[in-house]
Nucleic acid binder design. Structure first.
Lengths: 236, 236
DNA sequence: TCAAAAGTGTTCGGACTACACCCATGA
DNA sequence: TCATGGGTGTAGTCCGAACACTTTTGA
């Protein structure tokens, strides 16, 4: 701390907006704070950045502590730095959002942190500016998912097209034509049809698909037009 | 610093990637560092975040110190937090990028900071991870400008369509058909034709246009298709 | 009069949307 | 057999891309 010693230190925290999809609805993982201030109030999972870890490492460590998961999709969202966002100290928080397969998440950890999954329209009032963070993350997810095949990160290995469609419909709070939807998705060439069917949601059963991971990596940044009339949706 | 006193402090800096357009080429404003470490080396304009200002305020103040400009387009880019990005102390830097009308920028300030405008393909080696920051900002600009009419922020009040086209062509390092380009831009309804012409670049002269600011604000988030074949360009 | 840049229209193909019926199955 | 959700094809429209000639005027 030699050279810039006259600078007042500001603490740096990470907060994680963790999305999961249970096959029907998009959900958010929240915890009940175990420490003061704001003990017992709902909050995003977060923590401080250790001097010896980068921001990305810190975010991954925090996610792992809560979910047990590594190597999941995670992206830096925004740095939140209003002066009084934390009424106690001056803390800048770098928010990350993660998309996880809800089934891989380790249940037992949730008890330790008093974690629960919330549907997006039933999110309680959160501490500090965490509701703002969640809103920002939702907008970013809507925006990005309209252009890039990012939502596969939320799905299990095998999934059906009707599942995929209900995920998109939930995120955009709209209803899409299923013929157009499946044609569009299949035309990306990212999906590989399986021989077996999911029979939980219908008598006829829906074919499973898996992601073609090579094409997925190649095409991830291509602009797709996954959503009809994106202009008309409130994306930002 | 009462409640989280056990946390090691990390300093927070801001760095600004400042883009300007001189009518022909997109440029970047860099300064020559006046302080150690890395004295005299080229660098982005930056500074520390004061305890009493938000990140956005800090970024605006830094921009103003160098350019004299207020109220310009500025957006948070990314928080850079590798452990050894600054070989001295542990400093996390929040990068912002700004788009300014190069003509409004106050020349005299540049002397104070030894600032200079650099063409994008002639950027020198910068301190720390500043070259990474510039690359990230360029990609973000390409990405965003393909979908939103953001580049008007770089133009003076009155501009011509050929100027606009050369700006786009510079950013995407491509050549666009001028018939399609002007039709597309005019179809946004954002441009208001003036009666006078710019005669600096041609004998015939090109009509000036101004931005319809109301429509611009309304339509800013609409998805436009400003660039032909965005898939084929390296946008991310 | 010539060189240099501005301005403008049409045709074609591909992509998106709207729309309705049959299929498979478990109850 | 019937109710439920899965799966598929087509026609029309719109949008974007390709493409070439005329206009203006200063030198």
């Amino acid at each position: 701390m030699a050279k810039y010693a006259h600078q007042a230190p500001i603490l740096i925290a990470i907060d994680c907006i963790i999305f999961g999809f249970d096959g029907e609805r998009l959900k958010l993982l929240l915890i009940q704070r175990g420490i003061e201030p704001e003990m017992h109030k709902w909050s995003l999972m977060g923590g401080f950045v250790n001097t010896k870890e980068s921001l990305d490492e810190a975010a991954n460590n925090i996610l792992k502590k809560l979910t047990g998961l590594e190597g999941v999709y995670m992206e830096q969202l925004h740095a939140f730095g209003a002066v009084y966002r934390d009424p106690g100290d001056r803390i800048v928080s770098i928010a990350y959002f993660a998309l996880i397969d809800i089934h891989k998440y380790e249940q037992q950890l949730s008890h330790e942190y008093h974690a629960e999954w919330f549907e997006l329209d039933k999110i309680p009032s959160l501490i500090f500016d965490h509701n703002d963070m969640v809103d920002t993350a939702r907008k970013k997810l809507r925006y990005k998912a309209a252009l890039h095949p990012i939502l596969f990160e939320l799905l299990p290995e095998k999934f059906t097209i009707p599942q995929l469609q209900s995920l998109y419909e939930g995120i955009y709070d709209s209803v899409f034509d299923k013929r157009n939807f499946s044609r569009k998705l299949l035309s990306t060439g990212l999906l590989i049809k399986q021989k077996d069917k999911d029979k939980l949601n219908s008598k006829k059963g829906a074919f499973y698909y898996v992601l073609d991971k090579n094409k997925y990596k190649e095409n991830f940044h291509a602009f797709l037009n996954l959503i009809p009339n994106p202009d008309h949706l409130q994306l930002v």
